[in-house]
């Protein structure tokens, strides 16, 4: 098997050989794909991918988005308590570890900019992909902008307050 990183990423068959370093088997990648499909369906059917829903959230016109986000946090929080209390492991038998994201100034500065983008486009990163998959081709512009923003951040990072 090739040891070339790109080959391993591009070819699902080769990803098994990469399991040692990335800790992921072909099966694990398939399960990631399935959870992605599940989440993509949820994003569309819940309508959080609709610009109007996001706009109405920021205008306090309806509680739909707030209720979904809050319920999601509570359910995920209870699940994490369950995972911790009973020492639930992954189906590959590995421990489940969450690494908290450390605080830095970018959390506030970047967070405000991100929120502004969310309000303008009506999408956060997950919905961008769901919109494109659903055939809302204008969302390709949102993705192009997001990739440009990521590249600019990559180069500006050393100069930005963190």
């Amino acid at each position: 098997m090739s040891t070339n990183i790109h080959t391993n990423i591009d070819s699902p068959a080769a990803s098994k050989s990469a399991a040692g370093s990335a800790g992921m088997t072909l099966g694990a990648y398939l399960r990631v794909l399935l959870v992605g499909i599940f989440f993509g369906i949820v994003l569309v059917k819940s309508e959080v991918v609709r610009w109007q829903r996001v706009h109405d959230m920021f205008l306090f016109r309806e509680a739909h988005m707030y209720l979904i986000i809050t319920t999601g946090i509570i359910v995920a929080g209870l699940a994490m308590q369950w995972i911790k209390r009973f020492g639930i492991k992954t189906i590959d038998g590995k421990p489940i570890v969450y690494k908290p994201k450390p605080f830095h100034k970018g959390i506030i500065l970047g967070g405000i900019l991100f929120g502004a983008g969310w309000a303008i486009t009506g999408a956060c990163p997950g919905p961008i992909y769901a919109q494109i998959g659903a055939g809302a081709w204008m969302a390709l512009a949102t993705l192009a902008g997001a990739l440009a923003g990521m590249f600019v951040y990559a180069y500006a990072k050393p100069k930005l307050p963190h």
Binding site: K101, H104, G106, I107, I108, L109, G110, G111, I112, L113, F114, G115, A116, G117, W118, A119, I120, T121, A123, C124, P125, G126, I128, M138, A139, A141, T142, L143, A144, G145, A146, L147, A148, G149, M150, F151, V152, Y153, A154, L160
Partner: peptide
Amino acid sequence: LLVGGFLIGFGARYAGGC
């Protein structure tokens, strides 16, 4: 969408998540 997308990409990566 391009400008908003830019803010999403820059802001989310600067904030370390979305």
